[in-house]
Design a binder for these strands. Sequence first.
DNA 1: GGATGAATGTCGCCC
DNA 2: GGGCGACGTTCATCC
Lengths: 243, 243
Amino acid sequence: MYVASPPPSEAAGLINAGKKRGLVVVVGVCEVSYSGRAAASLGPGRRLVIIKRDGTLLVHEAEKAQPRIWNPPGSSTAAYVEEGRLVVKSVRQRPFEIVRVVFHAVDFVAAFEVSSTDLVLVGTEKDLVEALVRNPSFIEEGLEIVGVEVPVEAGHVDILARDKEGRYVVIEVKRDLATHEAVFQLARYVETYKRKGHAARGVLVAGDISASAYEYLKRFGLQFVKVNPRELTVATYKSTTEK
Amino acid sequence: MYVASPPPSEAAGLINAGKKRGLVVVVGVCEVSYSGRAAASLGPGRRLVIIKRDGTLLVHEAEKAQPRIWNPPGSSTAAYVEEGRLVVKSVRQRPFEIVRVVFHAVDFVAAFEVSSTDLVLVGTEKDLVEALVRNPSFIEEGLEIVGVEVPVEAGHVDILARDKEGRYVVIEVKRDLATHEAVFQLARYVETYKRKGHAARGVLVAGDISASAYEYLKRFGLQFVKVNPRELTVATYKSTTEK
DNA sequence: GGATGAATGTCGCCC
DNA sequence: GGGCGACGTTCATCC
């Protein structure tokens, strides 16, 4: 259902009816304000406004992947006419945040029932962890997996193993480029085991590592193992979808 | 400009013409596949597809703020007809990633010239840093600001100061809740100064701090100062935009 | 709801 | 382009 250049009252009706069942798209000249943890406003300009049934409100402009202004799922959206103008107001309760869109002109309103599917994504860090658990020799010979996602003081280690000498091996996995953050994370986990009196060492397994991260890694006495994440995870899937 | 239920060839023409000048919105029943660092696919369903002039491609469904599948700015988008069907293909070069949208039916195509404005956002961490620099007594009495965004080994300290005793005070600022990550960051920076032979201590300034972060903070001998970020930054702005 | 960390994160800044 | 960190991050998962 789509209507070109509707009067404000009709636009408001279309939005309020359409937002319950699916997705509403509004294009028009508007001013937008956001107020909450931070605050922002956009002067008059033509924009794309999307209202989803889960409460999501998105205001997109001509550039960038991210909306300029938004409210996340769980917000409450209402459309009404104020001083002859269409107003779309979105309220998020916690934290309390308001987005107000005041239209000077409405080019277009469309409402559709769209899908809500489960996305099957292959090639995430989780997939890489699973692949490594199935074949620990990708990391080093003689590893015996002790656990996966093992909780520690703060957080969890991706893979916990024992090496041939019986030492704990704490393994931190990153899909792509590992930065210093990954190194600190690993160092922290290894330290936790050592403080408990265990013999422990740390291995960072990633597609790559930044130069500065490698410096830190050496300083902490940790090891780096390079893997090809695509080979271990998405290769098969990729070949079936790429054209 | 909007066309309802266009045949595939017309839809392709509208998309290729419209993507150059502004923003194109397509709603229709489609299958979508993504292949690159990871891989994913969506079976047939009605979705909202957005094509921006900067190369952004977004595929939205009925829920969530984030697109289900996307390609970021800088990608190349092309629409064409393949086996009688409208296909929108987006290619990103580095890393190489492809998104393919094959339409079974097109409900409508709309193209608009939309704005591309500068967003003025008030109340960010940067704003909080500036407010604290203007009034260091919010942190503690007798602080003398030495520098802002001071580069260190890896990264930069938000505020560097000296206290009444002449010691360096490394100040890490978080707008809202500080987690253990912020504490580790601060500990790392303080350590850098100490290793150089300076007398240094660390202060975490944030709206709040998580319980576990506070434990780490104490263990590292750091201090926490609580601030109200809104009071220091957005309060005035907020009152002028909220309705 | 809090805690924790991943994300095809995106985005901006600085070198 | 790489490094680095913020983001009104969003999101899933676990407790």
